[in-house]
């Protein structure tokens, strides 16, 4: 393989810690950039909200912030119900903003952090714990006895519960990774004069459209799985 294909995760700096070797990879760099972007946006939004005058019509930036918050609140309310959504809309909003920015960062030439299985599996583990903590909170012991409901199917029920985080994380990882691989194949294998304008169309599909859809689907599935445990 003598071509300039760049598919994988590259380590830029290595250091030893507790007898193990760690690498500073391009996933870490991309995720630091994502966190910095989100922090700057949050500080700006906070300043705008503080200076806002409730007696006047909202300005341009404040209008956009209200639009985003309203959309996230509306989606959470329609999926989790009027009674419970207040406790979850903060987490769902954080998840959605993080996933949208980190999935679409590929358009700036970085490798999306969600094309690394560690990130998506971590997010899916958070969802797994949220599902079961809320299951115990709202259904008490019925959450455990549901596993033995038709008793011959107990192993299948247990595997089904354990497969939820695996399938959620693989879905996000596979979608983003497939876009990254196709873009790397096109940039690495085609001759230079064939790369003038049309890869932009592919960037719009694989980075913007697919990334936004997958961010939406991941947070939607999180909401649906948590809301399944509410008693009413």
């Amino acid at each position: 393989m003598e071509t300039e294909l760049d598919l994988g995760i590259n380590g830029y700096a290595r250091f030893e810690l507790f007898g193990k070797t760690f690498f500073l990879t391009n996933t870490h760099i991309a995720i630091i950039i994502v966190v910095a972007v989100i922090t700057v946006l949050a500080v700006l939004a906070n300043r705008v909200i503080r200076k806002a005058d409730p007696s006047k019509a909202p300005g341009k930036v404040l209008n956009v912030i209200e639009l985003v918050v309203d959309a996230i609140d509306g989606i959470t309310k329609s999926n989790m119900g009027e009674k419970h959504f207040r406790g979850f809309c903060n987490y769902i909003g954080t998840l959605m903003i993080f996933l949208v920015i980190s999935n679409t960062i590929g358009i700036f030439g970085l490798r999306p952090p969600t094309a690394d299985y560690g990130i998506t599996f971590g997010l899916a583990i958070i969802t797994f714990f949220l599902i079961h903590i809320n299951g115990f909170r709202y259904q008490k012991m019925k959450h455990v006895t549901d596993l033995f409901d038709p008793w011959p199917l107990t192993p299948i029920n247990v595997i089904g519960e354990l497969a939820t985080p695996v399938s959620m994380s693989l879905r996000l990882f596979g979608n983003i990774l497939s876009g990254t691989i196709i873009m790397a194949l096109i940039y690495g294998l085609l001759p230079k004069f064939m790369l003038l304008f049309w890869p932009g169309v592919l960037h719009i599909y694989f980075d913007l459209f697919s990334g936004a859809i997958q961010a939406f689907v991941f947070s939607m599935l999180t909401m649906v799985f948590i809301a399944k445990n509410f008693d009413d």
Binding site: V217, L221, V224
Partner: peptide, 23 residues
Amino acid sequence: LLGQAVAETTGLYSLVVAIILIF
């Protein structure tokens, strides 16, 4: 969109298997 994303999972499993086999 939600149903399509869930239906896509089996295809993505085969993609992951293919990537593991190659790389």
